[in-house]
Amino acid sequence: MSAKVLLCRCEDVTLAEVEHAIESGQRDIESLKRFTGFGTGWCQGKQCLISCARVLAARVGEFPLAPVTPRPPVHPMPLGMLASLGDAVSVDRLESVGAAGGDHGEGEGER
């Protein structure tokens, strides 16, 4: 049954695969993501993260304290559009761009 339940539809990760990953020692959400590949496809985890976190929580008895590190861009962006940004993202303006788009990724030395 769990072999036919899809948790991550972008990368075809089933409930059975997530369960197997937890059984084989992936007991935190970042490791589980890497081991199964959930959340690394088109939607970048917007649809599957909460389901996978819930399964993990039920198995290890502890809910993940944070989601996986979100990876920019928020939505897929064409390279041509990014290439045309030019000096709009100079070093000087980098911090303000990062701030406008939410925290651009990761805390210092984290995850």
Binding site: L82, V91, E106
Partner: peptide, 15 residues
């Protein structure tokens, strides 16, 4: 040690 992502990288790489 800094593992944050930057918009400057995406623009430079894409170009």
């Amino acid at each position: 040690i800094n593992q944050r992502s930057s918009a400057q990288f995406l623009a430079t790489y894409a170009r």
